[in-house]
Amino acid sequence: MFNYTIRRLLFAIPTLFVISFLIFAILDLAPNDPTGNLPLTIPPEVRENIRISLGLGEPFPIRYLKWCQQFFINEPLNLIEQWFDISIGDSENRLRVQSWATRSPVVDLIVERLPQTLWVLGLSYVIGILIAIPIGVISAYKQYSIFDQIGTFISMVGFSVPTFFTGLVCIVFFSSTLGWFPSIYDTTHEVTDLASFWFQVKQMIMPVMVLALFNASQLSRFMRASMLDNLSQDYVRTARAKGLKERSVLLIHVLRNSLIPVVTVIALGLPQIFAGAIITEQIFRVNGLGQLLIIGIQGADIPLVQTLTFIFAVLIVLFNLIADILYGMLDPRIRYE
């Protein structure tokens, strides 16, 4: 397993380079433009000048190599300098990856937003998993019971009604009509005492619950299906015949063997926390990474989108590797050698 992990990690490096190149190519080909949001009163020659000042006058391979240099060499160096408070070489003139819209280093923007994203999305994911697994297990164990039917109905509605809609319903109901929760996330809010903590909880409830519902619906379906598959297997009968307690049959044998698809779905979902939930963040105005990404895409802010997407790609590769390793732990029969 250790050798396998090392080999996969080594293989990930060329993969990620290919991915970064393809992302860059797609962003370059995409027909939206950084001057697209400027008022029409700004004449075309000025727009052309702005494009050149952003470095768009240079050929595509050079721009890609520049980004590689900035991201793979300059940014890590800069991080090391900040952590250890030293300076390596000519740190004053080292170019960092600069966003076109804000003219500030992309990595700083990401660092500024990471806490909000992790809190809101991470929490919604955790809640989603905590709801989904019990519901999935019980639904499968008592297949076609009333609990199962209701669970199925809610999760289907939860999945088929998009978050832009559930979010809006929540705002109209809880903010406009009842006035319980704020509809706009205050990102300058700092938790200092109990009252401000309570405010923080109130402003997080709606985005977290909307996302958790969506995640839980999907996850609980896979959990239920997988449990059903395993419940009818021979080993379950054997375990019961051996006189094992029903609880331990269910939770130790069946659950463990049913987790493989669930682990896959969770591993696919976790990088999404960093990519942000674009629509939900837009609706509730949580200044997460998803909102940063959508603003970047709308404004054709190529360095910003490239960097965010690439970090996202790294996480995907990483989490899929973790999932593969977990498969081996959950089911020792799986061998990769």
């Binding site: 027909p31 939206n32 433009d33 949001n37 054709a300």
Partner: peptide, 26 residues
């Protein structure tokens, strides 16, 4: 998409400058 329509990207056929249509509104 507004970013494309008003973006003026050379390679896109959908910009308001290229006007590959009969009528356009903005």
């Amino acid at each position: 998409d507004g970013g494309v329509f008003f973006g003026g990207d050379q390679s896109s056929p959908d910009t308001f400058q290229k006007f590959f249509a009969d009528i356009e509104m903005y």
